[in-house]
Write a protein that binds this DNA or RNA. Structure first.
Lengths: 341, 341
DNA sequence: ATGTTTGATGTAAAGGTTTACACAGCTGGA
DNA sequence: TCCAGCTGTGTAAACCTTTACATCAAACAT
């Protein structure tokens, strides 16, 4: 009962009174078949409810029309909206989208690579910030398929990247704080390994230096981008008693941790301290105080990335190997004029 | 350069000095081939880096080992964690997971159904709360594949459902408010169409009735589960001047709207009003006041749903067509003792 | 009238598996 | 000695397309 034998191209051909080659052409290259014949075929298709078997087609054409999305964490607040963009563009061009949630587990990444080598996916979108593990160690030197990185560039490689201009965005964010009179500005979320963090720190430095503000290294704090890291970094500054008037955070999630720490110490925001995030994730507008931040055009990022990947896939030589979009300053209530101290 | 001709089963067979049938058996039914032969085949596979071509296999076996997930909105805060569960279980059983973001657009749903009829997916996970549009209107009466609903049951159908016991959970939530001395309890988010809302309202009613509290219909407010609906409903109650001491909301997103409305009116929570949510979405612990709510075991829901679907797919007769998991009361700071008024 | 081009269609191969069936050799029982 | 059953392997069909090549008729040019 499971399989009631779907109609094949042969059934259609029989009904229309033509050969299967003609049916195939009527579907894929309509101009190459006579009007009258095409009409008969179309009718036969409607009559049988025929759909072309994607497996047979993929087998023959050596192409699955599927894209694999490799993400370390599907729960990442940046993920879902980029995914919508990716999916929208893919489906518009009749590609399907496969999800691989790797949790940064090398075994799982290697596992998912087999979707490529077994022809189940033609291309790869990388959220991971690194090339998949397990690449090229099987004999046969498995070639990597066309790829595009998103969210985080792939460190030392020439994998095309689509994302926000993190340096520029962070510079704008810092400028905003400076424009509110802040001079002692902390940067929360320094990292030596994550490209995004590095760029955002550079933007911060550029802005301060551009305004002749000397950077106090004690105001730069390591962090891995989690809420807890933001909270801990803030606490640490209080313990050491080296305090800024404003916190520029590597992302919104970190900023949330900073807000939690400050609120716990009963400070009033933004009167006593200003906090700035980056990303504009969903809850940024719901926190109290609502978060001033830089908005990533996530939908657009997804669309552009998929567009680039499909271009690569279709063999078009692609001019730009890097698409940097602008982030937008969203002013809410977590940043204020510097308080006279 | 794209395709350097991958090794096929034939190459392996040649190297191992056996027929392709034997190679296939060595891979899929190892016990059926002699130890020595199997060793040679394994070696040949390693040597060539052979991976079986999934398209050819699927074509032959009439099975893609792919599951299609149909979701109206990938950004739904309940979605991502359930997805992780679904994906984890699927990948454990070596199924792949395809994402279909439909935005409730009938055309897109119908479009995705073609993944089924073209054999690109064997089964369906429904987040949508309804059967996909475009089912069965093509001639040939396209049979629906094995399906499991998640997040929201599929109204009037016998599609198996995996989720939380909404009635019971809501009853527990209401009981909690009652235990804090509340008698005038509002229910925000009534709906006549959404099964989840209906069940949660029933749980609310059951709890109140069980404690001999007569229900004031003016305290039951329609809502579609958005933040804005929660805000508007609350405002409306102030305008009519019919006020509860506690708000039981159909979900956390709605509760957030209620909190926003109350905070805007400068009420102090939970001293003056109590607010209770449902779902325990990520930001529930970050709102101020942090939200008391019922936690959905989302990971588990995903895993159970996929497990059920795969069982269905493999033809096992499944005992339970409905898996109801318990939700857990999470006490935070948005609910307090009723204030003497 | 002959040769050439064009357009529409058909024939058959190829794509890479799985698996029913056949076969060969061997074991063990009668 | 013969037969039955078992084990391990091979042959070939089937799964459903796409497409190179062949064919044929009609149109056109010479």
């Amino acid at each position: 009962m499971q399989h009631q034998k779907l109609a094949t191209i042969e059934d259609v051909a029989a009904i229309a009174g033509v050969s299967i080659a003609t049916v195939s052409r009527a579907i894929n290259e309509p101009t190459k078949v006579a009007d009258e014949t095409r009409r008969r075929v179309t009718e036969a298709i409607a009559q049988t409810g025929y759909t072309t078997n994607a497996m047979a087609r993929s087998l023959r054409m050596r192409r699955s029309n599927m894209i694999l999305i490799l993400a370390p964490d599907v729960g990442d607040p940046n993920f879902s909206n980029i995914l919508v963009g990716l999916e929208t563009e893919a489906s518009k061009r009749s590609y399907g989208v496969l999800i691989g949630n790797t949790q940064n587990d090398p075994a799982r990444e290697a596992d998912y690579l087999r979707f490529i080598s077994s022809n189940r996916a033609d291309g790869l979108i990388l959220f991971t910030g690194h090339l998949p593990y397990g690449y090229g160690n099987d004999a046969g030197e498995s070639r990597l398929p066309p790829m595009v990185a998103v969210n985080e560039p792939v460190s030392n490689s020439d994998v095309p990247f689509v994302g926000v201009d993190n340096f520029e965005g962070s510079r704008i964010a810092a400028e905003h704080l400076i424009s509110q009179g802040h001079r002692r500005i902390a940067f929360i979320g320094r990292s030596t390994s994550k490209a995004v963090n590095i760029l955002r720190e550079k933007g911060y430095r550029a802005a301060l230096e551009g305004h002749g503000i000397t950077i106090d290294p004690r105001l730069i704090s390591d962090g891995d981008g989690t809420t807890e890291s933001g909270r801990a970094a803030t606490e640490h500054m209080f313990v050491r008693d080296v305090l800024p008037t404003a916190f520029l955070c590597v992302n919104d999630v970190t900023a949330l941790g900073v807000i939690i720490a400050l609120t716990a110490r009963r400070y009033e925001l933004p009167r006593q301290f200003s906090v700035m995030g980056f990303d504009d994730i969903t809850f940024a507008s719901f926190v109290s105080p609502s978060l001033t931040t830089m908005k990533q055009p996530r939908l657009k990022i997804g669309e552009e990335a998929m567009d680039l990947l499909l271009a690569l896939l279709e063999g078009k030589s692609v001019a730009r190997k890097q698409v940097l979009l602008r982030s937008e300053l969203i002013v809410r209530n977590s940043v204020g004029q510097v308080s006279r101290s």
